[in-house]
Design a protein around this nucleic acid. Sequence first.
DNA 1: CTGTTTTTTGACCGTGCGTCAAAAAGAATT
DNA 2: AATTCTTTTTGACGCACGGTCAAAAAACAG
Lengths: 241, 241
Amino acid sequence: MSVTQVRKERERAEREALILDHAQRLLVRDGFQDLNLDELAAAVEYSKGTLYLHFESKEDLTLAIATRAARERADLFERASRFQGRSRERMRAIGFACCQFAIMHRDYFNVEMMLKSASFWEKASLERRRLHGVQAGRLFQTTNAIAVEAQAVGDLPREHRAVDVTLSLFAITMGSHIVAMQPDVQLLAGIEDPICVVRQNQDRVCDGWGWKPLLAEWDYAATDRRIRDEVFPEATWLKTP
Amino acid sequence: MSVTQVRKERERAEREALILDHAQRLLVRDGFQDLNLDELAAAVEYSKGTLYLHFESKEDLTLAIATRAARERADLFERASRFQGRSRERMRAIGFACCQFAIMHRDYFNVEMMLKSASFWEKASLERRRLHGVQAGRLFQTTNAIAVEAQAVGDLPREHRAVDVTLSLFAITMGSHIVAMQPDVQLLAGIEDPICVVRQNQDRVCDGWGWKPLLAEWDYAATDRRIRDEVFPEATWLKTP
DNA sequence: CTGTTTTTTGACCGTGCGTCAAAAAGAATT
DNA sequence: AATTCTTTTTGACGCACGGTCAAAAAACAG
């Protein structure tokens, strides 16, 4: 590949990032339905035709936004999984990564939810679907590896499959985000901080599977401080008691 | 009100139900985005103008579908809550109602998820939003009452608020439905029956809060049989061992 | 049968996604 | 520097669909 081609490719990637930045901003502001591609074209100062050189449909563009966020999330998960500690502490580090991500991208789950609709999914390009699958796979595998290890060292009962545990943690995380982000639910249930709800529920699920050490048997506040100091120094949201 | 007006009102309600029936079918088939109001008008054999005598926008129509389903769900919850037994058995009956509903409306959660988008919500009429709030309130209150009672009789530790427990159960239910319904997840995690995943996760969350009697301390298969026999005789999906 | 009110209709409008012929920019050649 | 060929970019346009409303049809009243 010639030098020129390398430069072209880099410029193309930069333009794609620019488009994604603006598109994400508008998507968060207006939602998918009201995301206007003419406005986006004006914002990035390129024509609509140029947008379509990068993305083959509005859905494709939206999926690209979700995939970029998913990659970032998977990166945080992998950082978290390197935390040195007992298996449940490491899983807690994953939960910590979740929070860190949720704070950086308050609205990621709104975008993620669109992907669950079949009619949306099938309008995105095959290649982008594949790329998203890769990131989703990283997220799952990183988490599941900890559950598998937990069974290996005897912290987590072997009577159930590790994937079931992992899946339940994904479910409680997604579900908690969805319900705790609803303003009416926040009022009804007196929720101050949705992030706390997510973490609390993750803890309950782990306890529910009998993942040692249980909440009552360990000082997880200390674990949290270690996670922050050793893995996520940027996590200023964790209040140290 | 004259006799004629009563008849008119009944006919109007019947037509609205007809529209909702067809709209629900098309919504499930095509998703919100591809739900075509011209096609719907043709299906119900009324003009598009007539549709707009009932619903002030496509979102309004969709919300009406969701609310009708939510009412049905709340009815099942209330039936379930009348089950005679210990508090956790009664909560299990609620989980049972969830399953019964999920089987009758495989795709309810897809519709429900649309409502989480702010841009969707604000396009529906005030009155319909209110009506949906009423049904959502019934669902929550019916469930929460059991958690409150569980604390009163000492089955559920008092160290946490009952609403937090209720909320976590809603979260695990919604989250499990979403993740377990994904075809790729089903393959990745080897899921045969998504319904089982939902129930299993609900059990884990209850155990996680220390809701007595715990899974290991009670014969919940027997409870399930009682629930079916006494409350949901139509639930043929429960295989009796 | 005729005039009045109510109900229903479908042609029409605006919006916004996606396309593609044409213009502009860039590279190569003379 | 001029010309030709190639690549890149553009924005006017086609079209599908949600929503409107004047007019037609139906129902009703006298």
